[in-house]
Nucleic acid binder design. Sequence first.
DNA 1: TGTCCACTGGAACGTACGGCTT
DNA 2: AAGCCGTACGTTCCAGTGGACA
Length: 425
Amino acid sequence: MTSHTNHTVLDNVFQRFLNGPSVFKDRDVLRHDYVPEKLPHREQQIRCFGEIVAPVLRGSRCSNVFIYGKTGTGKTAVVKFVLNTLVQRARQFGAIVKICYVNCRLIGTEYRILSNLCAALGAKVPFTGLAVGEVYERFKKTLNQRKILFIAVLDEIDALIHARGDVLLYELTRINGCLCSSKTSIVGISNDLRFKEFLDPRVLSSLSEEEIVFRPYDAAELRDILSDRAWLAFQKGALLEGSIDLCAALAAAEHGDARRALDLLRVAGEVAERKGESLVTEGHIRQAERRIEHDQTVEALKNLPLHSKLVLCSVYLLGKVKISSAITGDIYEIYRELCDLSGLSPLTQRRVSSLVNELDVIGLLNTRVVSMGRYGRTRKTRLSVARGLIREVFTSDGRLRGLVDHAPKCFSTISSSRGRRRLPL
DNA sequence: TGTCCACTGGAACGTACGGCTT
DNA sequence: AAGCCGTACGTTCCAGTGGACA
């Protein structure tokens, strides 16, 4: 296709978009980062969190708070809403309040979290190169040079434990002892209820001076949330009666996740818009549900590191010969063959075993450790995603295109060995 | 009841890399 | 430029495991 026709196609798309009916008034209202003016069914949590942070207005340090609740239960929205208001009010009272919001899962490491905290105070810290202790010292020094009330919001704080960040938490909960003019408080947010079990008891006691629990929304509550947002997001009459109910019901079935509900509504609107329709129906919601699922999986597959893709491809190939749940040894044999074909040096079996585990965690594989008696202990692995989807994504990847149709030589060994040294799968 | 298999999974360590401090 | 640091990704080693089997 020439560049001229490419432009024509694109111009047609843009023209259709601009001329066609728009179901949206403001689609950004349905995005995750939007903090609404009104948070239905969270009045109690807002009041509770507000009471905890209120001492800041009088220049005192507020208690550390620990907030639990599953994904999409409004934790982050409530925290941002309350703290934004607090900063505004504090200004009127002459108190200097600084807030630093950090998502520990996205930021990832102790070092980067500290450098983010420093950045919030205006202290420059290099992207890498310093010892964590040094960054911590700079953070303390900057706080000591000023007289401010600092609130560090550590969202998805459970990720910090897995990244050995409990040392950082310990330091942060003790920092006020080393400060003379400024004061800090910590707001920890977690959607892992078992998080406390892994925490150092000293950290736990000071981190959870106060606790707030966010229970999941039920379908009726989700309906209210969606109605409010839909009113802002959609044109009048663009949403068929019943669409909101369906979104709410679908999201309520998935542990009352409001984010999921908002996603469904937004994508359904987009589906309708692309079809040039001016009414969002239940059919669009169903399509949105399928599309979200499809897109998430495709995205996950595309972004895998090369060796994880090869491991996944090996499980896919084993499925071809009706071996629905493969054992690690077989996966490794095929994986080695694929490496050979691709001109790569294979990783060790230990490493491949970890990759299989990682693929299980992100939901692309389904594994189960089983003991086959005197035939050893291993892990049975099967695909968690549609084979067609794997094929679709891998054939569009230059390095894997030839591999999805490969017929591994070791299939014969695997099937013959099954009777000899391994139990039937 | 002890043996043995085919691993699992923890821990320690190695290597490469980017980037800061001295 | 050398030395140091954190991070990412990997290897090596090895104790532990659960249940079939002799």
